[in-house]
């Protein structure tokens, strides 16, 4: 999902920076006492961007503070392992996609879902409409990708695309896709995977016209995996239900605020971007904010409820992962999803 090229030496650097920031932000005393505000740490699954705007706004507007929480937000990135931070007790909550979380749980991390934020997926497959020039076979439907080179993300992001290819009878040559879209832009491949809120717009910002592309929105093609959700260790939830619940409620409130105050939210996002000197720009963040909000807050036609993972979505996701062999036996919905986090009293 990285849209900028990164030096091959940056992991070293980022690790260094991360260690410093952790040293500063993480409360070494762990959970706070009753007298003090509850100190909580949230780890994002990627670098600061509009994808996490609700968290920023909850913090920014004092919603966490009002809930008696002292929240620290840690950025994600390829150099950050949220599962590890969670396991080591250095973080209380993480933001993660549902498949990722399920795979973490498969790998022994006892996660529970406190709130499902992104209910509509953002996965896309973007293809050059005319990869071989105007005389060649155009890409109109997924099957047109057969025999052609496409890049797809590795590991936990791979599933929906495999489902797409299978479902639509496409047999492309799949190359790994990492952080950049450069191979696609060099026309080294015919298609690549993007997030609606991110990569697609990056292509446009790299001078690609929308009409040069054929876009397959996976959620429109029957493959809708719930994405970002808020997770904690089951133990955390058990030990600090009240604080957790307040955190969840404040987070949702933050998202609502972000939805209702987009310009202000964008300013805050950009401030995070500036602090991290991230190579992105305001229009891109604005786009991302708009798109992520669309996938979080249901409109009248949308079947989901804000913050809630439906049993059906859960079932579909687990079945898909099972089918692809990524998990063996999924946890029961009621074991995995802590709906009380949303509903309990503040």
């Amino acid at each position: 999902m990285l849209l900028w090229s990164v030096s091959k030496r940056w992991p070293l650097l980022v690790t260094l920076v991360l260690c410093c920031s952790l040293a500063v932000t993480v409360n070494p005393a762990g959970a706070a006492g009753d007298d003090n505000p509850d100190a909580l740490t949230l780890v994002l699954q990627w670098h600061h961007q509009s994808q996490f705007a609700g968290y920023y706004m909850a913090l920014e507007k004092g919603l966490y503070k009002d809930a008696g929480l002292e929240v620290t937000i840690i950025r994600g990135g390829s150099d950050v392992r949220p599962d590890r931070l969670l396991a080591e007790g250095r973080a209380d909550f993480i933001s993660a996609m549902l498949p990722t979380a399920l795979e973490m749980r498969r790998d022994g991390l006892p996660l529970v879902l406190l709130a499902q934020l992104v209910n509509r997926g953002n996965f896309q497959l973007v293809a050059w409409k005319h990869p071989d020039g105007s005389d060649g076979t155009p890409v109109v439907q997924p099957a047109d990708l057969s025999g052609r080179r496409v890049t797809v993300w590795e590991q936990d992001f791979r599933s929906p695309y495999l489902a797409l290819f299978r479902g639509w009878g496409a047999r492309p040559e799949i190359l790994p896709q990492y952080y950049s879209l450069s191979l696609f832009l060099h026309r080294g491949v015919v298609a690549c995977s993007t997030m609606r809120y991110n990569g697609y717009h990056t292509l446009l910002q790299n001078g690609v016209s929308a009409d040069e592309l054929t876009v397959f929105n996976l959620w429109e093609l029957g493959i809708n995996l719930p994405e970002d959700g808020l997770y904690a260790l089951a133990d955390t939830w058990r030990r600090r239900p009240e604080a957790s619940r307040r955190f969840v409620r404040a987070t949702l409130e933050g998202w609502r605020y972000a939805r209702d105050h987009r310009q202000e939210t964008l300013e805050v996002v950009m401030r995070y971007i500036e602090q991290e000197k991230l190579p992105t720009n305001r229009p891109h963040m604005a786009w991302m904010l708009d798109e992520i909000l669309k996938s979080i807050f249901p409109t009248n036609d949308d079947p989901w409820t804000f913050g809630v993972l439906s049993r059906q979505s859960y079932r579909e996701t687990t079945q898909l992962l099972q089918r692809q062999g990524r998990i063996d036996s999924p946890p029961a919905y009621q074991d995995f999803v802590r709906t009380e986090a949303l509903n309990g009293p503040l």
Partner: peptide, 21 residues
């Protein structure tokens, strides 16, 4: 996974990466 390797590896030709900081 970086472009400097990824691009020439899959393009199989010399390539200038996008500039980066």
């Amino acid at each position: 996974q970086q472009d400097w390797f990824y691009l020439p590896y899959y393009l199989q030709r010399p390539v200038w990466t996008e500039p980066y900081y």
